[in-house]
């Protein structure tokens, strides 16, 4: 059971209604949808929201519509401190 306030992306407060509105506007490929609706770019980088978003896309997409349903990976897999990358101690 979902409501208008059902949160899809907890990092960025994106609701199911936000995602449906973006789909309705024609942002039906996952890359465009991510950018328009704004999910998947917070601290968890999509780990919490992508399955739910994909389900909504599948439910909405017209058969045969040209689209991409894969997101390009954005490293790092988990956030890494600048100090660690720079080879210095965190501080």
């Amino acid at each position: 059971m979902t409501t208008a306030k059902t949160i899809i992306c907890r990092c960025e407060d994106v609701t199911e209604a936000d995602v449906r509105a973006a789909l309705h506007l024609g942002f039906t490929d996952l890359e465009s949808l991510k950018r328009y609706a704004g999910f998947g770019t917070g601290p968890c980088q999509g780990k919490g929201c992508l399955s739910a978003v994909r389900a909504l896309v599948r439910e909405t997409a017209e058969a045969g519509e040209p689209t991409t349903q894969r997101l390009r990976t954005r490293p790092p897999a988990v956030p890494v401190a600048l100090g660690a990358l720079a080879g210095k101690e965190e501080g």
Binding site: T41, G42, P43, Q45, R72, R74, P75, P76, P79, V80, A81, L82, G83, A84, L85, A86, G87, K88, E89, E90, G91
Partner: peptide
Amino acid sequence: FLRRFARRAVELFPRLAAVRVQRQW
């Protein structure tokens, strides 16, 4: 790129050493 950027960023802004990189492209 991550290493070079991080080295320069921490050199210029020492207090950013603990700030974490979230994504790169």
